[in-house]
């Protein structure tokens, strides 16, 4: 899994991750406030344009974004079936109530999931965990013991994935792999936890032996920058949010959901 290794030089990879996360905040707020297909569709268009311009276009269509393309229509479908009914009824069965209104809600929900998730997933793909930790600890001044502890824990993703595969083979070898997939899955998950916690305890010892957690003012071998590039990334994020909101207001589809 790629989070266990250093990421290759993607565009924006050198930007402080704090800025990349922050850039998604304004649009997320706008899209959470309103439930309308226009703001979301405009946002998607802007996102595709921006990603194409900075060279992240190929990532949008990579397998890593596949979950979005699957989950968004399904979430929309839930709302088509169970959304608040209004307007003409097309189909009713038990608690399922497909109406003109619920179709619209479904469409809006689907576009909204895509519009919110797409930039976050694509931008996270350009984030190296080490840079994220540097940003969290040095830019946002979160407690370094916790940030670095979490970062060190990430080292174990690779060995945990390997463990998971081996555990599965071992269950086949022990003769218990023919039935009971849920029970076996739970047992396997438990074994994975045992191994991970053991390794984590050893890792903690190794870190302590190297002075981690000592009552000394920690220094940083590298500085996390936060300069013009970072501010421009955030500005682009604000701009996209503003365009999406303006479009919806002009189109008359802007509706603050909880006010309704």
């Amino acid at each position: 899994m790629s989070i266990a290794s250093v990421r290759p030089g993607l565009p924006l990879a050198a930007v402080n991750p704090v800025a990349k996360v922050a850039a998604t905040v304004p649009l997320s707020i706008v899209l959470v406030l309103t439930l309308d297909p226009v703001s979301a569709a405009v946002a998607i268009a802007c996102e595709l344009l921006v990603f194409a311009l900075v060279g992240l276009g190929p990532l949008v269509w990579s397998p890593r974004t596949l979950p979005i393309w699957i989950a968004a229509p399904l979430t929309g479908l839930s709302m088509v079936l169970y959304g608040a009914p209004s307007g003409e009824t097309y189909w009713q069965f038990g608690v399922i109530h497909v109406t003109e209104g619920s179709l619209l809600i479904g469409l809006a929900t689907m576009t909204r999931v895509i519009a919110i998730a797409l930039p976050a997933v694509v931008l996270f793909l350009t984030i190296d965990p080490t840079d994220l930790a540097d940003g969290l600890a040095q830019t946002l001044h979160l407690p370094s013991r916790f940030v670095l502890g979490a970062l060190a824990g990430l080292r174990l993703v690779g060995s945990s994935v390997d463990d998971w595969r081996t555990l599965r083979l071992a269950r086949r070898a022990r003769g218990v792999a023919d039935h009971g997939i849920v029970r076996r899955g739970l047992g396997q998950a438990f074994a994975l936890l045992v191994l991970a916690i053991r390794r984590g305890s050893t890792l903690a010892t190794a870190m302590e032996a190297r002075g981690f957690g000592a009552p000394v003012d920690r220094t940083w071998a590298r500085t996390a920058r936060f300069g013009a590039v970072e501010w421009s990334v955030i500005a682009v994020g604000c701009l996209v949010a503003a365009i999406a909101a303006t479009a919806a207001i002009l189109a008359g589809t802007w509706n603050v959901v909880w006010a309704a």
Partner: peptide, 15 residues
């Protein structure tokens, strides 16, 4: 929080 608390909590999250 001891170091081992932080690291093991992280590892549990990871696992």
């Amino acid at each position: 929080w001891r170091v081992v608390d932080i690291v093991v909590a992280s590892v549990v999250g990871v696992a």
